[in-house]
Amino acid sequence: METAEAAAAAPGQIADMARIAAAAAAADPFLPRVYRVRQARRELGDTVTLELQPESGAAPAFAPGQFNMLYRHGVGETAISISGASEDGAGFLHTVRKVGAVSAALAGLEPGAAVGVRGPFGSGWPLAAAEGADVVVVAGGLGLAPLRPAIRHLLARRERYGRVAILFGARHPRELLFRQELERWRARLDVDVMVTVDHADASWHGSVGVVTPLIRRAAFDPHETHALVCGPEVMMRFAAGALCDAGVPQSRIHLSMERNMKCAIGLCGHCQFGPAFVCKDGPVMRYDRIAGLLAVREI
């Protein structure tokens, strides 16, 4: 949505031939690089985390919250958020749920499989801006995946932040993503981890209910808090509302939006969300800039 520089170019008046010449000489952003699956780890019944490493050279740096376009030969390409860096930093982790032909093909890959990768693309979580403040992370379902690199970042630099709360909701205890890592986070004394599920049987000793009421129970100073929210859009809408009710300024609430991202570079038009292209103005977007759009159906 930041198009001040675009406005300055006065399109439609005079062709900027220097810019066009530079564009013609630029690297083709549609071309993927070949990566290989180094490891495939089953997270849930339909969800797998792939560790991807470039066939040659180093993987580019990424900001927590960004995504890559993953391509499987002959099947297609899809946008998948980066759910972490591999342990040696040489590649990406992507947590993929089987929801369509491409994601199903990716989720079925075994070590050694070739994958085309373009990216990373998009905006990241405001981790630098949040330094010195409290951070509330609200995740729903697979929405924990794009938040995991942010949580790892926060915990690795714990001294730079105030209180940190991680609020996570899932459908059922069986469907808690990154369960072991959640346990490790929960074992730390310097982070408040609250997990809730929609449905459970008596063997679940944790909380049952939606994630939004956890916001009332978490300890943070609303005026000095940055909130990072990712999950289904309806959950994010209500989580953002609950954060506002708690006194967090709208401009410090960040949501990771999801739309149909086909090109990832703002050229195909599919991921428009009002004036924004989710692929390049998002996926992480400030709530104050999109609150009005979130209230409009079929936007």
Partner: peptide
């Protein structure tokens, strides 16, 4: 919200 079963 629970009825929506949103996390799926």
């Amino acid at each position: 919200l629970q009825i929506l079963d949103i996390y799926g």
